[in-house]
Every structure is written in structure tokens, then in C-alpha cells.
Design a protein around this nucleic acid. Structure first.
Lengths: 150, 150
DNA sequence: ATTATTTACTTGTTTTTTGCAAGTATGCTA
DNA sequence: TAGCATACTTGCAAAAAACAAGTAAATAAT
């Protein structure tokens, strides 16, 4: 990283598709394990996913700990540094709500709601995720296509 | 694009490093031509840059027109769809201002200022860029390292 | 207790993308 | 009209991604 542009810095440490999709899965869908990330709609390859999880951990965006109830599982969660990406993810969502014709009305309303009281709601969502929840409810079983709000 | 996740949609159409750096160069530094993008700190390869400009144009983020004063030059500018990425770019900047230790105090203050009256200022910046200006003044000659505010 | 299954990965191999070094076409400039 | 600037393109090597298997440890089923 030869220069100090903040955007370039961000793009180099978290700015690739698979990394951001993992962060999304944790923050918006409450996913926590390798297998759950693997079964996302976008279907990452196992080696790519493993690499991204390692890098995200190395760079301090996520931490992992072994599940005490099932020691095969590793539980991944966001650090403060990772939680602070939520506002950016929401801006991407807001953009897509406006320009992706496939986004449902339901989601556009969600964005409007967020925009109406941006900082208060953002803080609320970060808090929710910090405490083990997820922005779109705490349901991993739900699919992206099901619509965003509980 | 097989599924309808807004984040995934965004990442597929604009979500790679070189595309976002071009958008940044236009919006934040007022750059407009192939040569100006090429001479950015990150030094893209000519073929990659050409490819990204073509894709950004195809996907409706930028438009190009020939410079009337110098017909060798193509002038690139953001469409409304591209301008609407500015809030997301600012969120990445805000994140980096917090987590990249190399960001100068000056830039952190800029972020604080933006945060204090987010929507009003965001609209102002978009307007500035829409009218041919740039967020960090209208100076292409300036370098990223020079500091963000005029 | 043994076998099968689940989970989190690794390890090749192929395919795609990137990055580098040139080269080309067109318009301006001296 | 000779050189130079500008916006590209092309060919090749290197890196990264995607695909297909395989491995090791823990749990579940018989």
C-alpha cells in the first residue's frame, strides 16, 4: 500500500466481493459458520472462502472461536472494525434499492426508513449485530429472496 | 446474476477496485480523461483501465464525449447512477478515517463535518460533481497526499 | 464399539483475470 | 511535415479464481 488514499486503503483490506459477502452474511443474515457462508446464494468455492476468512481474521474484521456445543464448528463474528462496515454496506443497499429493478418495494421502504433517521438507526443495527443478532432478524434459515424485513 | 441480493448486485456491477477508483477520481479529484486516470497514485495498466471505462459506460455509470477543444481527448463524467455512488464512497472514507492510522487529522475532521449534517452535505457534494466540480476542490493537479480540503 | 456423516478445511488442476511491455491510430504542435 | 500527445489495442507471462477431490477431527447412528 504505497499511498494514503482512504478509499484505496479500504478496497485493499476488505474490498473484494467474497470478503464483503461474508460480512454481509454475518451482519444481515446472522450467519456464523463456514458451512453457512458456503451455502449462501452466491456459492463461494471452499478454498476461496477459507482464504477470505483467514484474511478477514488477520486484518481484524472478524474473530473465530470454537463452538463449545459442537467442537467441529468455528463461530465467526464481527469485531468493532468489522461492525463499522455496516453503514457502508447499507449505502450499497440503498444504491441498489434505487437502481436494481429487481429489488422489491419492501426493501425500498426499508431503505427509506433507514434514511429518515440515519444515524440513530445505524447505531441500533450495529448494536444488534454486536450482541449476536442480525439486521434482517436473527434467522439464518431465511433466504435472501424472502425479503429483508421480519 | 442469479439472485437478487442488493449488495451482490452492486458488487457485480461496480464493485471492483479499479472501477471504484475511477469513480473516486472523477468525484473527489475532478479527473476527466484517460490520461488523468492513468496518472493516479495507483497506476492502473492501460488495458485494465480501458476495460473498466468501457464496462462503467456500458453499465451506465459514466458517459464519454469527445473534447471539442482537443479532439484527441475523451471527457468522462458521471451519470446520475454514478453520482449516487458518492454516499457509499464517503462511507468507505469515513471507515478508513477511523481505522487507517495514516489518515491525517485534517481528513478526520472532514468526515466529522460530513457526519454532522449528513444528508444536506451529501446532496451538496453530488450537486457539485454533477456541475463539473469535484468534492476535494476542482483541482486535478492536486495529489491525494496533499490533503482533502481546499 | 464401529461405521457413517458432518464440518472445516487442503491440495491439485484448469480456467479466467490481471499486469506488463509493446504497438497503433488519430489529432495537435512546432 | 515531423514530432509528440492521447486513447486506446494486442500478445504474453504471472497471479488469482473456480472446480473437483481429498483429509482430519468431531458428532450421530447402528
Amino acid at each position: 500500500m504505497e499511498n494514503t488514499c482512504p478509499l484505496n486503503y479500504g478496497l485493499e483490506v476488505f474490498g473484494d466481493r467474497w470478503s464483503l459477502l461474508v460480512i454481509r452474511d454475518i451482519a444481515f443474515w446472522g450467519k456464523k459458520t463456514f458451512g453457512e457462508f458456503l451455502r449462501s446464494n452466491e456459492r463461494p468455492a471452499t478454498n476461496i472462502l477459507a482464504g477470505r476468512l483467514a484474511r478477514l481474521e488477520k486484518n481484524g474484521f472478524i474473530v473465530k472461536r470454537t463452538d463449545e456445543k459442537d467442537k467441529r464448528k468455528e463461530i465467526y463474528s464481527l469485531t468493532e472494525k468489522g461492525l463499522d462496515l455496516i453503514p457502508m454496506l447499507m449505502e450499497i443497499g440503498a444504491w441498489a434499492a434505487k437502481y436494481d429493478p429487481r429489488q422489491p418495494e419492501e426493501f425500498k421502504q426499508f431503505v427509506t426508513m433507514v434514511r429518515a433517521d440515519q444515524q440513530r438507526l445505524t447505531a441500533h443495527f450495529i448494536d444488534k449485530v454486536r450482541n449476536g443478532g442480525a439486521i434482517f432478524a436473527d434467522a439464518v434459515g431465511r433466504q435472501s429472496g424472502d425479503g429483508p424485513i421480519e
